[in-house]
Amino acid sequence: MNGFAHAAAPLWGLDPAQVSLVAKRENEVWRAEGPGGPYALRLHRPGYRTAAELQSELDWMAMLAKGGLTVPRPIPSRTGRLVEVVGDTPVDLLTWMPGRMVGKQGALEGITDRAGHMHRLGALLARLHDLSDNWTPPEGFTRPRWDRPGLLGETPLWGPFWANPDLTSAQRATLRQVQIRAEADLAARETALDYGLIHADAITENVMVDGETLVLIDFDDGGWGFRDFDLATVLMRQLTAADYPALRAALLEGYAARRTVDEAALDLLLLCRALTYLGWIIPRRDEPGGEERSRRAVATALPLAETYLETSDV
């Protein structure tokens, strides 16, 4: 997409020679230098999000930034649009966020007060949920749904987790049993659960530290979902940490200062979060490191699934 980035830069009045690749994950992110400071030029994978979904993501982020949350703010192009299309590639421009990424694969790198960090992150997610609840999305707003069908239906949002090729036949049978039981469990709880717009991907790679401020980036998977799912996403990467109980308690305490937490539902959604990665990796398994990530997803999800079957009373 190198040529696309260089072709897109002038749409925002930026010099193509001052654009450099900094990240290539679901999307490509390029750092674009400009008179107003650096910006993040995002090239979206064609076909991954509809035009309406991309516009909705940016409208939501703009509201959060205006509400005081430290998140990237979308910048209109010279034509006034938030999303431009170069070839078949949607492109947008965001303010460049200061600070450093917390870490990779759940590592809290350079964080000396680990519980304090989790407490601040819980409070940040609570503010995000508060602002979202107080906002009326514009007409046509559409984002993915991390609801019961999206997590445990026959066509989950991130794919059929029971079909992961690194599962044995016995493990697939276990996950099918979990799917049926967990779906009934969530159905019995869902009317009482807090539901609304969530980030859905507040992993360490998407949280930045700037002094005492936490910065939340990458809203690509954000959408409608159970609020405890945001907490579950944070906690899943910490399950094997020696201080996991303290990290969990701090995260929930920071969140519960503003909003309520259903701990029983949180455990169920932790299981659901782990299952999603089994499906997510299937179309990406042939990418560099894909097989290792797939096996890691299996190693995380299976113990949770087996414990759930042993302890649930649905």
Rank of each mutant, 00 (worst) to 15 (best):
Gly13Ser: 10
Gly13Leu: 12
Leu14Asp: 00
Ala17Arg: 08
Lys24Asn: 15
Asn27Leu: 01
Glu28Ile: 06
Trp30Lys: 13
Ala40Thr: 02
Leu41His: 14
Thr50Asp: 01
Leu54Trp: 08
Leu54Lys: 04
Leu58Thr: 15
Leu58Glu: 12
Met61Glu: 07
Met63Val: 15
Lys66Met: 12
Lys66His: 15
Gly67Ile: 04
Leu69Gln: 08
Thr70Tyr: 10
Arg73Pro: 09
Arg73Asp: 11
Ile75Phe: 05
Pro76Gln: 03
Arg78Glu: 13
Arg81Tyr: 04
Arg81Asp: 09
Leu93Asp: 01
Thr95Lys: 02
Pro98Cys: 04
Gly99Cys: 04
Met101Gly: 09
Ala107Asn: 13
Leu108Thr: 09
Gly110Tyr: 03
Ile111Asp: 03
Asp113Pro: 08
His117Asp: 01
Met118Asn: 09
His119Val: 12
Arg127His: 09
Asp130His: 13
Pro138Ala: 15
Glu139Cys: 08
Thr142Met: 13
Pro144Arg: 10
Arg145His: 14
Asp147Leu: 04
Leu151Ala: 04
Gly153Arg: 07
Asn164His: 11
Ser169Tyr: 05
Ala170Ser: 13
Ala170Thr: 11
Leu175Arg: 00
Gln177Ala: 15
Val178Ser: 13
Tyr195Pro: 06
Ala200Trp: 00
Ile203Phe: 10
Thr204Gly: 07
Glu205Leu: 00
Met208Lys: 08
Asp210Ala: 05
Leu214Gln: 00
Val215Gln: 01
Asp218Lys: 07
Phe219Asp: 01
Asp220Ala: 02
Asp220Gln: 01
Gly225Phe: 02
Val234Glu: 04
Met236Gln: 10
Ala241Met: 07
Leu252Gly: 00
Tyr255Met: 10
Asp262Val: 08
Asp267Asn: 08
Cys272Met: 07
Thr276Asn: 03
Leu278Ala: 07
Ile282Glu: 07
Arg284Lys: 09
Pro288Thr: 05
Gly289Thr: 11
Arg295Trp: 14
Arg296Phe: 12
Leu302Asn: 02
Val314Pro: 01
